[in-house]
Design a protein around this nucleic acid. Structure first.
Length: 243
DNA sequence: CAAATTTGACCAAG
DNA sequence: CTTGGTCAAATTTG
């Protein structure tokens, strides 16, 4: 694999959470510990996506859910620290959905997002409090992705992300027939008119310059920067200091 | 004010 | 013993 391409690796079941009960008063007032007595459940999906090379703050790829950072630690072998995210809405619930974002020391322009666990966002209409998880996302969508018991893992993941990026109803596909499998086929090139999501963008120009400095590859499509999977052999300018 | 975020410390597993 | 992971509290931002 030289370069360019989406690397999706399906992890395996090697996650072992604590199971003991010895409650050592870790300070704090409560005695509840976190040895989650959960069986072997921890789907680990590793998705590699082009990082948001913006000199400073790292902006994790919005997958359509709100994540609350609950920790950051440096990993041996990696030059950059790893960020641990957990569902903001689920954290008070029971959603074991967790997200891990780590920059590759070899390719600071790439982000390794590891999704652990599944989402359990069930917005009940009867429930009193049902704050929308994310603007633009509908329950239908959430259900579409979580509704599938065990789809092609990464396949569906990349799919819904792409849909999210293109916008509901804009892309192609309905709820089946996924073409862009991990292989690299299919090519549902959608309209390039992608309205950016409404996020704060107040970084000074300095950061922008830094971004360019970091990666002089600024194509016309910002989407490509985020999702090179759909863009296959398009005219890649011979600009790439790397490699 | 509330929520989200940050940093440190501790624990648990390998 | 080392690494990784999570929690907890404090702080900051909106």
């Amino acid at each position: 694999m030289g370069s360019g391409g989406l690397a999706i690796e399906s992890g395996s079941r090697s996650d072992v959470q604590a199971v003991d009960a010895s409650d050592s008063g870790r300070g704090s007032s409560s005695s509840s510990k976190r040895p989650r007595i959960r069986n072997d459940d921890a789907e680990k999906r590793t998705v590699r996506v082009p990082a948001q090379q913006f000199g400073n703050t790292e902006i994790p790829p919005e997958d359509g859910f709100s994540w609350r950072k609950y920790g950051q630690k440096e990993i041996l072998g990696s030059k950059f620290p790893r960020a641990y995210y957990r569902c903001t809405n689920q954290n008070l619930y029971h959603c074991p959905a967790k997200k891990q974002v780590q920059r590759l020391d070899d390719d600071p322009c790439r982000l390794e997002v590891v999704y652990r666990g599944e989402h359990t966002c069930h917005l009940s209409a009867t429930a009193p409090s049902a704050p929308p998880p994310a603007p633009g996302i509908t329950q239908e969508m959430a259900q579409t992705m979580i509704g599938q018991p065990q789809p092609s893992t990464a396949t569906s993941l990349g799919r819904w992300v792409l849909e999210f990026r293109l916008g509901p109803g804009g892309g192609a596909g309905s709820s089946s027939s996924s073409s862009m499998a991990a292989g690299s086929s299919g090519g549902a090139a959608g309209p390039s008119t992608v309205g950016r999501y409404g996020k704060e963008a107040d970084y000074p120009i300095t950061d922008m310059a830094d971004a360019m400095f970091n990666s002089g590859s600024s194509s016309t499509n910002s989407m490509e920067l985020i999702f090179p999977s759909i863009s296959e052999e398009k005219r890649d300018q011979p600009s790439d200091k790397n490699n």
